[in-house]
């Protein structure tokens, strides 16, 4: 991590980033910058390195070469894929959210922490659920709990791994709207998604990834048949509906 020549609105920057698991290189020479107020979706086929990129940006995965630079003092919040969470772990929603409170390691909560917990859970609409076991939450509530945990640590940049995976349409929209509200509150958001039409098409910025950055920019510029075909190695059409792009598979000619 370096801080030299840092642009004031830049939060995170990947330069010539390469990541490998053993001999297999998963990401090749990724260059990417995340600035204040960004709301970025990372899309790509399975195995394209979306989660790997997110982990490298978060600092939990060391790159094999290249570097990720982070603004000094930046507070990051990471929301894991729900499939990777041990839902039998014996914690309540409040206990889970309070893990990230940086004030102390002691078991009890301070008045300030209780106030902050109430504020955050109220903000995310899960104030009534704080005494429940984490397994008793629905998919959307689980996402809200992890976002609350990140906010508890005053995160200024949220990294979310497949936050809408497995959610129904209504809950998916709720999560998306919540993230848009957080962005308006000054929190930058980067998420990975498989959902091109339900999520990606509604985001202002997209990164199309297939082990390398195929395209990166405003959604309208990036969601083109050429870029999608290069990313997914499959022919696709992009239609327009109610001001949003709609991606459809193009039948493969035989």
């Amino acid at each position: 991590m370096t801080d030299t020549g840092w642009q004031p609105d830049l939060l995170l920057e990947a330069k010539q980033l390469c990541c490998s698991y053993g001999p297999d290189e998963v990401l090749t020479e990724v260059n990417l910058g995340i600035a204040v107020g960004d709301f970025v979706g990372i899309v790509g086929p399975s195995g394209s390195g979306k989660s790997t990129l997110l982990r490298a940006l978060s600092g939990s995965l060391a790159p094999s070469s290249g570097q990720v630079s982070r603004r000094r003092g930046l507070s990051l919040g990471f929301v894991p894929q729900v499939d990777h969470v041990n839902w039998d772990f014996p914690v309540t929603v409040a206990q889970c959210i309070l893990m990230a409170s940086p004030r102390s390691g002691r078991p009890w909560t301070t008045r300030v922490e209780r106030h902050r917990l109430a504020e955050v859970t109220e903000r995310l609409g899960i104030a009534e659920l704080t005494n429940r076991h984490i397994r008793a939450l629905s998919g959307g509530q689980q996402q809200r709990m992890f976002i609350a945990r990140a906010l508890m640590a005053n995160a200024k940049l949220l990294l979310l791994d497949e936050p809408t995976s497995g959610l129904d349409v209504r809950t998916r929209h709720d999560v998306l709207h919540l993230l848009q509200e957080l962005k308006q509150d000054g929190i930058s958001v980067v998420l990975t998604t498989h959902d091109l039409n339900g999520i990606a098409a509604h985001l202002p910025t997209l990164v199309c990834l297939n082990r390398r950055v195929v395209a990166w920019g405003p959604t309208q510029d990036v969601l083109t048949p050429q870029v999608l075909e290069e990313t997914y190695c499959s022919p696709m059409e992009v239609l327009q509906h109610a001001g949003f792009p709609v991606v459809v598979d193009r039948p493969i000619a035989r």
């Binding site: 982990r55 978060s58 600092g59 939990s60 990051l76 919040g77 990471f78 894991p80 969470v85 041990n86 772990f89 914690v91 889970c96 893990m99 990230a100 945990r149 640590a153 990294l159």
Partner: peptide, 9 residues
């Protein structure tokens, strides 16, 4: 509970 997120935090 979650070593990876703990590290990121």
């Amino acid at each position: 509970f979650d070593p990876e997120v703990a590290q990121v935090s």
